[in-house]
Design a protein around this nucleic acid. Structure first.
Lengths: 234, 234
DNA sequence: GTCCATTTTTACGCTTTTTTTACACCTTTT
DNA sequence: AAAAGGTGTAAAAAAAGCGTAAAAATGGAC
């Protein structure tokens, strides 16, 4: 087949069986997707937060974390489409996975053509609802596509961590983003608890660069005990 | 099961077999969906344009129009989610249907539970922004999604414990929530008994912040010996 | 190797929140 | 009428959380 339809779309494969991983990797690469891999659930969650894939293929038969837990951990902060792959054919398992946030459930043995077709379907949904990549709040503009932040029309220089943090906040504008979610998205799943220290420091950096009066923030406000909120104001 | 989750969401069934139609109709109605039916492809296309359903369940084994044509006709003007239902298990058929715009492909025989779960998945994609988990009582509004509490349009500041307690009460609005339930939900399973002390203190805090006359509560009322009740009043 | 920007570590003052402690009140029971 | 159990305030002490500054470590570019 060797299509080029995938056009570099990032897909993360989480599967403990090297054979299946290889099969998937080769096939998906042949369709033009950029494939990342994880052999354990733990690594899967980490990779998901690192590479921000457009889609995840998740095998439920993992050794360390139950596949369902991986799904739940990812769903805590991301809406990325997840296609569950499994040998289990029991209806309860299907229902549980789908209700936990899976977008599709494919039972082994499966045809690669079908899987790729279902991947296309899942990706169709996200492309459909792809928002405009420029977030504005007051005199601030964040261009996710170009990775550019402008304040009063002037380009603001942000370090990678600062940008990741701002992006994590701004892409959930109006809602509270918990400290755990932020830590996971910016620093990866290892620091998902207890290290809220980093957060305070970098929130401070962002405020110093973006707020008019950093001591009285109007853009990134603190929700004590919970997290932070990025406010959109006209 | 007889859930009421569907909440009147319109689903169109296109199937030529009256038995399967009936099975689907009864099951989906029991889940709270508003079901419309069509026995032929021609009628299906017509009904789709008439009722503008939120989702279509389409059987490919139709007599007049090939099911695929129905799908294509619908896709000409609508992006409504379509779940294809069929006895054909050939991979090419699946791929063809999915690429023609179907959102899922379920092979007979199938479990109704799975089908309903897949319907929920398909609806999740479209209903994303339609949800409104805002609880109102008098001049109070609790927005669970944004974690915002407003009284007379003004934002009320609540500590994490206060908010958790209010959420536990309000999400069972009208019903009594026992002290044990509250302790367990807010403080965790350790304090599930005996520590009803905390409860009284924080109920007091909430009343002071939310009630007009905290000494004569109209929002959070005490059910002596049992627990507390969050009242909804227009 | 040195230099630079960035990240991580370390330290501390301050505020908010939670927990503890104490006591007054009311209703029901003895 | 006194005792008992459940309830509501008010204040403390203790704990946890937040924000800033600055030093140390990391890692890449040259």
């Amino acid at each position: 087949m060797t299509n080029e339809n995938g056009a570099g779309t990032r897909i993360l494969i989480v599967d403990d069986e090297p054979q299946i991983r290889k099969l998937l990797r080769v096939t998906l690469a042949a369709h033009g997707y950029a494939v990342h891999e994880a052999g354990t659930g733990e690594e899967g969650v980490l990779q998901a937060s690192m590479h921000a894939p457009e889609l995840i293929v998740l095998d439920l038969g993992l050794p360390d974390l139950a596949g369902m837990q991986v799904l739940e951990r990812i769903r805590e902060w991301s809406g990325v489409p997840v296609i569950v792959l499994t040998a289990k054919d029991r209806e309860e398992d299907k229902i549980a996975a789908l209700d936990a946030g899976a977008d599709d459930y494919v039972t082994k043995p499966f045809g690669m053509g079908e899987l790729v077709a279902r991947i296309r379907v899942a990706l169709r949904h996200t492309v459909k609802s792809a928002e405009e990549p420029v977030i504005r709040s007051g005199n601030l503009a964040i261009d996710l596509a170009q990775r550019i932040v402008e304040l009063n029309g002037e380009r603001i220089k942000l370090t990678p961590t600062e940008y990741d943090l701002l992006k994590a906040l701004a892409s959930h504008a109006g809602k509270v983003v918990t400290q755990r979610q932020l830590l996971q998205q910016v620093w990866g799943s290892r620091h998902d608890e207890g290290d809220s220290h980093y957060l305070r420091i970098y929130i401070g950096h962002l405020r110093k660069k973006l707020e008019e009066d950093p001591s009285q923030p109007e853009l990134i406000v603190t929700e004590p005990g919970v997290g932070y909120r990025f406010l959109i104001r006209e």
